[in-house]
Amino acid sequence: MALELMISAPTDFDFVIGDWFVTHRRLKERLASCNEWVEFDGKMSTKKILGGFGNIEDNLLQLPGEDVRAIALRSYDQNTRKWSIWWLDGRFPGQIDVPVIGSFVDGVGTFFANDRFQEIPITVRFVWRQIGEDLLHWDQAFSVDAGESWETNWTMAFRRQS
């Protein structure tokens, strides 16, 4: 009888599991030397899937003038020990973003993808941090020079719902 090796699910993203209030800050214009930020509220709820080797994040973004639903889907590759993160925006239901791929080092998750923004080739970077038991931070940045410089264009501050 062969022994089966049981691999434990990763715990990297356990800190996001649950229900959260979100304060979004997004640059009014990206890659345009803009310094004007738009701030809006939202909610996020995340649960494990794939036996803990993934999770799904359901978002309500309360943009000025409209509410938008979106999801983030994350899955872990046991062979590479990396996470992939996809984004699906309810305004564009037939288009899922290129996944950002990365891992956690010392509790900070950094993820990258090559993509395009308004026909400009870019590198996308996501950074996830747990600030405290009930506080999280995420930011997104774009680079047009292969990571030599970055424009942070969207941040999210999360507060756990009680």
Rank of each mutant, 00 (worst) to 15 (best):
Y76H: 09
K82D: 00
G42W: 07
Y76K: 07
K43M: 11
I71F: 10
D67N: 15
N59D: 09
W86S: 03
L73E: 00
D67I: 02
I71K: 06
K28L: 08
I56D: 03
F53H: 10
L88W: 01
K47Q: 15
V68H: 06
E29N: 14
N35H: 15
D77C: 14
S45L: 08
S33Y: 13
G52L: 05
L31R: 06
K28Y: 05
G90C: 13
N59K: 04
S84T: 02
L73K: 02
K48D: 01
G42S: 11
V68T: 01
D41Q: 14
N79I: 12
G54L: 11
C34W: 09
N79V: 12
D77K: 07
K28N: 13
E57R: 07
I71T: 04
G42F: 00
R81I: 04
A70F: 03
D77A: 09
I49Y: 09
S45V: 01
N35R: 13
G54Q: 10
L73H: 04
P64A: 07
I49E: 08
L63K: 05
G90M: 11
F53V: 02
R91A: 12
L27Y: 05
R81K: 15
Y76D: 01
N35K: 14
R81V: 10
D58H: 15
N59G: 07
K43D: 06
L88F: 09
Q62P: 05
V68I: 11
D67Y: 07
K47H: 15
R30H: 07
F53C: 08
D58E: 15
W87A: 10
W37Q: 13
K82R: 14
N59W: 01
W86M: 04
D77L: 05
G42Y: 04
N59Y: 05
I49A: 07
R91F: 12
G52F: 05
L27N: 05
S33A: 14
R74F: 04
G65S: 12
Q78N: 14
L27G: 02
G54E: 09
E29I: 00
S75K: 02
N79D: 15
E36Q: 15
Q78K: 15
Q78V: 15
R30Y: 07
L61I: 02
E29K: 11
K43P: 02
R69I: 10
K28E: 11
N55E: 11
L27C: 05
N79G: 07
G90H: 12
V38P: 07
K48N: 12
F53E: 01
I49V: 15
D41F: 10
W86H: 06
K47P: 01
Q78H: 14
K28P: 01
G51A: 06
W37A: 10
S84G: 02
A32Q: 12
E36Y: 06
K48V: 06
D67E: 14
S33I: 10
I56W: 00
W87E: 08
W83G: 07
Q62V: 13
W87D: 03
W83V: 00
K28A: 13
R81P: 01
V68G: 04
G65I: 08
G52I: 05
W83Y: 12
E29C: 08
G51H: 03
S33R: 11
F40L: 10
N35M: 12
E29L: 10
G51K: 03
E36M: 09
G54H: 00
L61M: 15
